[in-house]
Design a protein around this nucleic acid. Structure first.
Lengths: 209, 209
DNA sequence: GTCTATACACTGATAGAC
DNA sequence: GTCTATCAGTGTATAGAC
């Protein structure tokens, strides 16, 4: 039945997401994915022929979650830079709370095998846009000339903003361990307050006072 | 012979570092480490009984490379905050150039198994220092009261500074791929210019203008 | 200390019944 | 579509000779 098939496929993908994102491609076990999905290994291979193909699917879905926000940030033209930063940080961190393991998963797997990204862009050409940052650079230049912000290029700004949001999440075990004596509650407070901190920090850094 | 033994042990550790840091605990193969070290698997187990023990050694060495700089930053008391930031970014990025794969390796393995960090601090109690950030917080508070910097706490500052240095390295495949069309040379230029960018960005953000 | 040979467990994948 | 049973390959680890 298609009904049942759809359900099983969803169960498999959900289970695969959890296992792959926590243990990585090489650490994940088909048996564990099957167990989590409530089926057996044979059925796993029936739906996704190989482990690699299942992984590829999980990676694509994970990657697609965080890309649109970045495109929106650099492409949208109806906001001033300060508003853009504030809006982006707000929505990006909300997204991080929903999917805290995706960034570390994506970063790690891409370091192990950068080819994955090339394959992704070949399969999803709608994301492959040349000169994606040109408009944003023009806006930054314009606002700098008008004396609103200091001169800054889009790559450095985006890398900084995204890094400030993501780093406390992917490096959580080490930061929480060293700076917060592994106090989980204290770290959650830190994270909840950091949203406001990031926005103010960025704006103070680029603002002309 | 001790002479020979020392040499073999070094060869093994060097090989293990390279393989573990590139492929992770679960992706690494004892065979590959043996090949890189120019010996066979049996000898590998003769020196380090299990894969886990060899990994543990590699992790400890990797982790110890980046910790002292952080302690130095927060503990040293002979510099003003601006100088500290400038000095830290300079020396931390130099260290990153020497060991570009360690941060991603450490972050990833700690996410897979946070217990590693607990074990590390138990074995290396000299690194386990309570209230490590108290002095730095006092300095930040003092300079804020003197109108030199805006109020900021040490955890947010350290997380931001370290994140700005490390993020472009660990997330290199994705940033280079999306923002630089996978142009390796262009990304190297970006990285070389970023050292200065980080220092100025941080100081602008916390300075009272 | 270093090697060859091998034990033993596990993993991804398939065959075939229902 | 879903299952049980099983294969072929690979991985860590050890035994034993030198």
């Amino acid at each position: 039945m298609i009904e049942q098939a759809k359900d099983t496929e969803t169960k498999i993908l959900d289970a695969a997401k959890e296992v792959f994102q926590h243990k990585g491609l090489t650490g994940a076990r088909m048996q564990e994915i099957a167990d989590k999905a409530g089926i057996n290994k044979a059925l796993l291979h029936y739906y996704y022929r190989t482990k690699d193909k299942l992984f590829e699917k999980v990676f694509e879905l994970a990657f697609s979650v965080f890309i649109p926000k970045v495109r929106e940030m650099v492409l949208s033209s109806d906001k001033k830079v300060f508003e853009k930063v504030e809006f982006f940080v707000e929505s990006y961190i909300n997204l991080l709370y929903k999917h805290p393991f995706i960034p570390g998963f994506v970063i790690n797997e891409l370091n192990r095998n950068p080819q994955i990204l090339v394959n992704f862009f070949e399969k999803n050409i709608q994301f492959k846009e040349l000169n994606l940052f040109d408009n944003f650079d023009a806006q930054l230049k314009s606002e700098a000339e008008n004396g609103i912000i200091r001169p800054i290029d889009s790559r450095n700004l985006m890398t900084t903003v995204i890094g400030m949001c993501i780093f406390p999440i992917v490096a959580r075990p080490i930061i929480q361990g060293i700076m917060f004596n592994n106090d989980k509650k204290a770290y959650e407070v830190f994270l909840s307050e950091r949203k406001k901190f990031i926005t103010e920090f960025i704006i103070n850094a680029i603002k002309v006072h």
